[in-house]
Simulated scan of single mutants.
Amino acid sequence: MQKTYDRFKGDGFEIIAVNVRESKGAVKSFVDRHGLTFPVALDQSAEVYRSWEIYYLPTSIFINREGRPERMYVGGMSERQVDMWIEDLLSGS
């Protein structure tokens, strides 16, 4: 995700990772170890997780420029697939 963020961040693209039920220390360690520069939110009570009706992790939600969910993918995604979906969203397809 960091590579994808680096590639698209200047095009109006943003990543916000939401970590569910992990400690602040564990999340900070992960962020530091992987050199993540995009925001990582903590959902320690799983409120966001439940409100979006997410049942499996990882789940990726792609939100369009109007702030509406456009696509959702459950499971790991290839870098190529992520890039294609982002390019579609940024182009307005």
Rank of each mutant, 00 (worst) to 15 (best):
E47V: 09
S23L: 08
P69A: 13
D88A: 15
K3Y: 02
G10I: 00
Q44L: 04
I15A: 03
H34S: 10
E87Y: 06
K28G: 08
S93R: 14
E70H: 06
S23G: 14
G25L: 10
I63W: 05
M1Y: 08
D43F: 06
I15E: 02
W52T: 00
S23W: 06
D43H: 10
T37I: 13
V82A: 14
E53S: 14
S45D: 14
S93N: 13
G67R: 07
R68Y: 02
A17H: 03
Y56S: 12
G10D: 04
I86C: 10
L36Y: 15
E14T: 12
G10Q: 01
F13S: 06
S29F: 01
I54Q: 05
M1K: 09
R7L: 11
K24Y: 10
S45L: 11
V74L: 11
V18A: 04
R71M: 05
G25N: 12
V20D: 01
G75M: 06
R7S: 09
S78M: 05
L42F: 06
E70P: 00
L36V: 06
P39S: 11
G10S: 02
D88E: 15
E87M: 11
I86G: 11
V18S: 05
W85I: 15
V48A: 13
V48H: 02
I16S: 01
T59L: 02
I86T: 13
Q44S: 12
I86E: 08
A46P: 07
F30D: 05
E66H: 04
G10T: 00
A41R: 12
D83N: 15
G92M: 09
V74H: 08
D83E: 15
V74F: 10
R68I: 03
Q44V: 03
Q44D: 11
F62L: 14
I61P: 10
L36P: 08
V18N: 05
M84I: 11
D6C: 03
M1H: 10
L36N: 07
S91G: 07
W85Y: 14
M77D: 02
N19S: 13
E87P: 00
S60H: 12
I54M: 07
M72S: 08
M77H: 04
V74R: 13
A46E: 13
A41D: 08
F62Q: 02
D32W: 01
I15R: 04
V27F: 08
D32Q: 14
Y55N: 12
S23K: 11
M1E: 12
E87D: 13
S93P: 00
F13Y: 11
E22N: 13
S45P: 00
G75D: 04
T59P: 02
L90F: 10
R50N: 09
M84L: 14
A17R: 01
A46S: 15
V18Y: 06
F62E: 02
I16P: 01
T59V: 03
D6K: 14
Q2M: 06
M84F: 12
P69H: 04
T4P: 01
G35E: 04
G12T: 08
I16T: 12
D83W: 01
R65L: 04
D11H: 10
G75P: 08
E22T: 02
F30P: 07
G35P: 01
P69W: 03
E53P: 00
D88G: 12
S60A: 13
